[in-house]
Every structure is written in structure tokens, then in C-alpha cells.
């Protein structure tokens, strides 16, 4: 028998559509309009076609920022996803210890982004910061304000510290949702811990991992506040990521046309990578189910 369809659900979706239209679609349309014009004043604009896109796409500073951004986001995913899974696996599943662990784990998530930057600015200083002094004490030369690699690694470590708990909490929720009979069947079959992880836990974490990968990719790709507070994009341009480049263009130089063109390219890059990650993870899940 065919299932009856209830179109009243569309009415319930309508408020969300209206909110999204006002908060996202209309601003995005305005950005598209700005991207093809030279904005001289609130009511003075001249149509320039694709000139801003051409200019922005050939800017070597943008190429550098894009390379750094891609490297950063891929490093974030490569570290935070496995680390988050590992943390979720070792967390106690029940009792008082589970509650305490979850609260402690979630603490970095409660700290505002600019405060995270300030914490790490002090924590990583080579003269008074605990981390900086400890690394220098080991005989390694570390100075995130002067060395490009040190600065980049410090921003990466800060992001890992701030956001790995989110991945861990998502995975923890996913692990808690696996029914006990799966583990009982694994024990009866004599499955090792690795086999249990590989064939029971990991496949059933696919849904939350898709969300975690997408969230962490999009968020790390749009990172602004923490590196801005920690390094200000320096030394040189070593930690200038795409959003800092955009802010400099839009707010610093007030080049609204090129900034709008760049915003659209930025949006398309995020859209493309998110789509590829989402499709790849869904595809991997389907192949595994077969």
C-alpha cells in the first residue's frame, strides 16, 4: 500500500525558509551585486563586469593565503578527527567518572574565541609562557612571534586544543548509541579490540563523523579570531588565512567590490570541499554496507 504524503510539513518548514532568506540569501545576493560593481558610495556604483574576479583570482597574496588555509584545514582534520575518536574511545562510559570527564573535556569549547587567542598568546610566549619556556628548556629554539613555522604550528596546536573536544563529544555520543548486542556478538566471535573498532564502532560512527568532518573543515577554513589575536597574521604573512585577507580587503582598504568577488570565491571553495567530503563519506558508507 502506498504511504500517504502529508504536505503540511512544508508549512512547518516555511518559517525556517524565511529566516534563512533574510539572514543568508538576501545578504548573499547583495554580495553578488557588489562583486560586479565599483562601489563608490552608498548610492554610487559603476558596473565593471568580471573585473574584480579577474583581479582577485590573479592576486599572489590570495594564492598564498589559500595554500596556507588548505594546509591548515587538512592538518586540522588529520589531527582532530583521529584524536577525537581516540579520546571518545578511552572516556568512561558510565558513572561519576563519565560526567566529570565530559565536563573537563568540554571546557575549551566554553571559552570565547578571542579569549582562546589571548590564553595562547601568553601560554606560548618564549620568555614567560609555560609552553614556550618548556619548549625552549628542551633545547629547541621556539619563538612564535619571529619564526613562521613556529607561528603556524602554534595556531594549529591552539585549534586542536580548542576544537578536538567537539569531535570527541560527537564520537562519544555516537559510541553511546551503539546497542550492547553488537558488542556481545563481537565477544562471542572472539573479536579483538581492533576488529570491534574497525567493524562495529567505526561504521556506526559514520554519521557523526560526517558531521564532525564537515563542521571542522568549514570552521577551520573560516578561522579568523584566534590567529588574529595570537599572531595578527604574522610573522610576515605566515598565519594570514583567507578570512584575514578578506577582512583586510573589505574593512582595511574598503575595497568592497574586490572583497565581494573574493567572498563569493571563498564561499564556492567551502561549498566544493564540503560537498566532496560529504559525498565521499556517504559513498564510503554505502560501499561498506554492500
Amino acid at each position: 500500500m502506498e504511504k500517504p504524503t502529508n504536505n503540511r510539513a512544508w508549512l512547518l518548514v516555511l518559517p525556517v525558509l524565511l529566516v534563512v532568506a533574510f539572514s543568508a540569501v538576501i545578504p548573499l545576493m547583495t554580495v553578488v551585486n557588489y562583486s560586479v560593481q565599483d562601489i563608490l558610495g552608498p548610492e554610487q556604483h559603476v558596473f565593471v563586469g568580471t573585473e574584480w574576479f579577474r583581479k582577485v583570482l590573479r592576486d599572489p597574496e590570495l594564492h598564498g593565503a589559500l595554500r596556507r588555509q588548505l594546509g591548515f584545514s587538512l592538518a586540522v582534520l588529520a589531527i582532530e578527527i583521529p584524536l577525537g575518536i581516540a579520546l571518545a574511545l578511552v572516556l568512561p562510559m558510565r558513572g561519576r567518572a563519565a560526567s566529570v570527564s565530559l565536563v573537563v573535556l568540554a571546557l575549551p569549547l566554553l571559552i570565547p574565541w578571542n579569549v582562546v587567542g589571548t590564553i595562547w598568546q601568553i601560554f606560548a610566549r618564549g620568555d614567560i609562557g609555560l609552553l614556550g619556556v618548556a619548549i625552549n628548556g628542551l633545547g629547541l629554539k621556539y619563538n612564535y612571534t619571529a619564526d613562521a613555522l613556529d607561528a603556524w604550528l602554534t595556531v594549529l596546536a591552539m585549534d586542536v586544543w580548542h576544537w578536538t573536544p567537539l569531535v570527541a563529544l560527537l564520537c562519544y555520543a555516537g559510541l553511546r548509541a551503539i546497542p550492547e548486542p553488537f558488542y556481545q556478538a563481537a565477544r562471542i566471535d572472539g573479536a579483538s579490540a581492533w576488529a570491534t573498532f574497525r567493524y562495529i564502532q567505526l561504521p556506526r560512527l559514520r554519521g557523526v563523523l560526517t558531521i564532525a568532518v564537515l563542521l571542522r573543515f568549514m570552521d577551520s577554513f573560516m578561522i579568523y579570531t584566534e590567529p588574529f589575536v595570537l599572531t595578527g597574521g604574522g610573522p610576515g604573512n605566515a598565519t594570514t588565512f583567507l578570512s584575514q585577507y578578506l577582512t583586510r580587503l573589505a574593512v582595511g582598504q574598503f575595497d568592497l567590490g574586490p572583497a565581494a568577488a573574493f567572498s563569493l570565491i571563498y564561499f564556492l571553495v567551502v561549498l566544493l570541499f564540503s560537498y566532496v567530503f560529504y559525498t565521499a563519506m556517504q559513498h564510503a558508507g554505502r560501499s561498506e554496507a554492500r
Binding site: 547583495t30 553578488v32 551585486n33 560586479v36 560593481q37 562601489i39 563586469g49
Partner: peptide, 12 residues
């Protein structure tokens, strides 16, 4: 304030 042009209007 949205700075509409004919070209972007056609596009959308």
C-alpha cells in the same frame, strides 16, 4: 542598498 543591476537581476 542592494545595488541591483540588470545583469545580476537576470542571473538570479
Amino acid at each position: 542598498w542592494m545595488a541591483w543591476t540588470l545583469e545580476t537581476g537576470v542571473f538570479f
